[in-house]
Amino acid sequence: MPLIKMENIVKEYPMGKARFTALKDINLSVEKGEFCGLIGPSGSGKTTLLNIVGALDDPTGGTAVVLGSDISGLSHRQAAEMRSRHMGFIFQTYNLLPVYTVYENVEFPLLIMKMADKDRKNKVNAALEWVGLSDKRKSRPGQLSGGESQRVAVARAIVKRPELVLADEPTANLDAENSHNILDMMVKLNRELKTTFVFATHDEKVISYLRRKIHLFDGKIVKDEPARGKE
């Protein structure tokens, strides 16, 4: 069974008296372990689609089944529960909590899940090891470089071992070297943990790493291109 299954998805927004259609008739299936990206220019609908996949928004029409649940039928609480247990998020601007240490930032999703102390500690240490930041565990976000901050964000996204990680322009604020480091790390996590990654991007560096490229334009999938990215 696919991890994400979308059929005839439509998303419309009211714009004054008219309605703006952000997504039109989207049909998409993503299997577990994929490393794929929604690619397209600004306004093409990739973030809107990522919102629906992440149970942050409902489609206006069609069926979106993510991790076995129909997104349209989820209450706010159920959607939050799904995100909390099964999804990780990586944002363009890291969005780390500035007053907490690296360790505490990574620990936070596990606190939301009410995980026991011992398990939490093990998982946070493991996540920091994966991203190579064990030595920075006591640092605050303000003391980190952009690359390090995004690595913390990645650790925070994967610490609970989610089935699905959603990343919106994760390298937009990074230089080329840091971008490649982050993407190499994500590829490694995808391979070793079998975590599914879905990106929304128009960054060529990211695109070069994708194993599947879903091209969006004007709210439609114009090309779904299974391709071999960098390993």
């Binding site: 706010h76 529960e81 799904m82 247990r85 998020f89 944002f91 909590l97 936070f108 939301i112």
Partner: peptide, 8 residues
Amino acid sequence: VRLAMGEP
């Protein structure tokens, strides 16, 4: 971030 991460 907290809402996105699933805090109700």
